[in-house]
């Protein structure tokens, strides 16, 4: 009885997801260049938001330095491709492996020495800033001048991941779809259950046999590896990478704004949140430039964050779901880590 109703809502959820992505594919076929490039960024940050969401929304571990992993991915792809002509596919794989390893080491060291919660989050910023400065001084990787991809010839080349703006739109769309489906699948898997258990109550989870230490290291590592894949593609889309932009604090904020605004721990939240926040960011940026107020986009970001946390503490997506009662959520998303830090 319960199981069949579960299956019904499963079907509904997957169906809804398929529809949304089909609609986005149609949009990609019709829209103008500006909309395409903006949506490409939205979808890439949806994917990276999913990776961040996996870590906090499901695994209960807060990172505010995801730019570290995004940057590692971007540099792995760029260095291999620009310097050695190696296909970005290899770069994406290598970037994911390196970022996964860096994430695992960072998590292992912190959790081993009981650096948790907000202190772990501070450590992630420190690591990202350290890496940014290191890459800035690393001449081989272009230093502060960064690395530039050759302008695309225009012809689509899937093997080298090169093509026009529309091509990258569909790459980003595929990634976002993988992110949404992957979050859904992981959240309903063995990992999802034990991660959510340790997110809600570490001590109680351990008493039930969950080896929370290794699972925390694992979730950070997977989150890092997937963020790196997003970073690798982001670098390709932008055509150039600079340490200050690809590893800067702004990237860390862009990564987390989608899931925080959209709904933490949900599969669709990061998509909805990125759709809402990133175009706003761009529009405010343009408006700010026009008005000679360069900080306007950051102010807008901050305002959106405050409004959402104030009025929709679970995020936009869970609130929408509650309004329409259409889809069952895997878990009510809130900010578990912040609650835990209070004790």
């Amino acid at each position: 009885m319960q199981r069949t109703s579960d299956q019904a809502s499963d079907t509904k959820r997957w169906g809804a997801g398929a529809l949304v992505f089909a609609a986005l594919a149609v949009v990609g076929g019709m829209s103008n260049a500006y909309v395409i490039s903006l949506l490409t960024i939205v979808l890439l940050f949806t994917f990276m938001g999913q990776s961040w969401n996996l870590m906090l929304g499901i695994g209960g571990q807060l990172s505010i330095g995801h730019a570290l992993f995004v940057g590692i991915g971007a540099y792995a792809v760029a260095i291999l491709n620009i310097k050695y002509g190696i296909t970005p596919w290899i770069g994406l794989l290598l970037g994911a492996v390196i970022a996964g390893f860096v994430g695992a080491v960072l998590a292992w060291l912190s959790f081993r020495f009981e650096v948790r919660g907000i202190y772990f989050a501070l450590l992630t910023i420190a690591a990202a800033e350290f890496a940014r400065i290191m890459f800035g001084g690393w001449d081989y990787a272009g230093g502060m001048q960064g690395l530039f991809y050759q302008a695309p010839s225009g012809a689509m080349d899937l093997g080298m991941l090169r093509g026009d703006a529309r091509f990258y739109y569909f790459v980003a769309l595929a990634l976002a779809a993988i992110g949404v489906a992957g979050t859904e699948l992981i959240s309903r898997s063995y990992w999802g259950y034990v991660w959510r258990a340790m997110r809600d109550d570490d001590e109680a989870a351990r008493a039930l046999g969950v080896r929370t230490f290794r699972h925390k290291v694992l979730v950070v590592s997977i989150s890092a590896a997937t963020a790196a894949v997003g970073g690798g593609v982001l670098g390709l889309v932008q055509g150039a990478i600079f340490p200050d932009s690809i590893m800067g604090m702004a990237i860390s904020v862009d990564v987390l704004i989608g899931p925080v605004v959209g709904g933490l721990g949900t599969a669709f939240g990061p998509l909805v949140g990125s759709m809402a926040a990133i175009p706003l960011h761009h529009a405010m940026g343009a408006l700010g430039d026009a008005l000679g107020l360069p900080g306007l986009n950051s102010v807008a970001y901050g305002a959106v964050l405050i409004l959402v946390v104030w009025f929709l503490p679970d995020g936009i997506w869970p609130s929408m779901v509650r309004l329409y009662g259409a889809v069952q959520l895997p878990a009510r998303g809130r900010i578990p880590q912040l609650r835990k830090v209070e004790e």
Partner: peptide, 28 residues
Amino acid sequence: TFQIVRPMKDMSVLENAMVGAFSWTTNV
């Protein structure tokens, strides 16, 4: 069991009861 109960707050009753089973199986 804990004298002061410690349910996993954002998981359903069934999901709470599933966690312990993952100490001996990975099959959902």
